[in-house]
Amino acid sequence: MSRRFTPKVITANDLREGDVIYLTADDRWSRNHSEAELIDDEAHAEIRLIHATRQSSDIVGAYLADAKSGPHGPEPVHFREAFRARGPSNYAHGKQAERHG
C-alpha cells in the first residue's frame, strides 16, 4: 500500500540577502509563506523542486517542506517551518521588525 503524499511548498534562502523565500505558482520567489505554491502531487513537487534548484544564481538550499491549506494560503505544518516563516528571532530587522514597527 502506498503512503499518502503530504502537500508541500518549495522553500529556499535568497542567495544575496539570506531571507527565507518560497516558490510561487507563477515562478516568483516570495518572502511570504502564504504566497507559495501548494503542491499536492508528488511527481509535480519533484519537477518543481528541480526547477527551483536550477536557479542557483538567486537561491540556495531549496527543499520541499510539508504544508497545509489555510484560509489565506499555505500554512506551515512543522514548528521549524513556522519559525522560518516568521523570520529572525530578534525584532531589530526582517519580517518581525515589519510587524512590530
Rank of each mutant, 00 (worst) to 15 (best):
I10L: 00
I21R: 01
A97H: 09
W29V: 00
P76N: 05
V20K: 07
P76K: 05
S30C: 02
D26I: 05
E37Q: 14
L49C: 07
F83R: 14
H44D: 07
E81L: 07
H93F: 09
I39Y: 06
L64R: 15
R54I: 06
N90K: 03
R3S: 14
A97E: 12
A52K: 00
T11F: 01
I59H: 02
S57A: 09
D27V: 07
K8R: 13
E46L: 12
R31E: 14
I47M: 07
E46M: 12
T53W: 00
S89T: 12
R54A: 03
N32V: 03
Y22L: 01
H51D: 09
F79G: 05
Q96K: 01
T6C: 10
V9N: 08
V60E: 13
E42S: 12
A52W: 00
W29K: 01
K68V: 10
D40L: 03
A43H: 13
R86E: 03
D27R: 15
A25G: 05
R84E: 14
A12L: 00
D19K: 11
T11N: 07
D66L: 06
D66N: 11
E17Y: 05
T53A: 04
I59T: 02
A92K: 11
N13S: 12
Y63F: 08
H93S: 13
N32Y: 15
T53V: 04
V60A: 08
I10T: 01
N32Q: 14
E37F: 00
D19A: 11
M1S: 13
P74S: 09
D58W: 03
M1I: 13
A65S: 13
D66I: 03
V60S: 05
D41I: 01
L64C: 09
P74M: 11
E37M: 11
P88F: 07
M1A: 08
R28C: 07
N90R: 12
R54V: 02
E17T: 11
G101D: 11
P74R: 10
A36D: 05
Y91A: 05
A45P: 04
W29I: 00
G73H: 12
A85Q: 08
A67F: 00
E75W: 06
H44W: 05
Q55S: 01
S89H: 06
P88W: 02
P71Y: 15
A43R: 14
L38V: 00
K95R: 15
Y63S: 06
S2T: 09
I21C: 05
E37N: 10
Q55Y: 04
I39G: 01
I59Q: 01
L15K: 14
G101P: 10
S56K: 11
R54P: 02
A52E: 00
E37P: 04
F5R: 01
R99W: 04
E17S: 15
R84N: 05
R4K: 14
L15W: 03
A12F: 00
F79V: 09
G87V: 02
A43W: 10
L38K: 03
G18I: 04
K95V: 04
G94F: 02
D14A: 11
F79Y: 12
H100Y: 03
H72S: 14
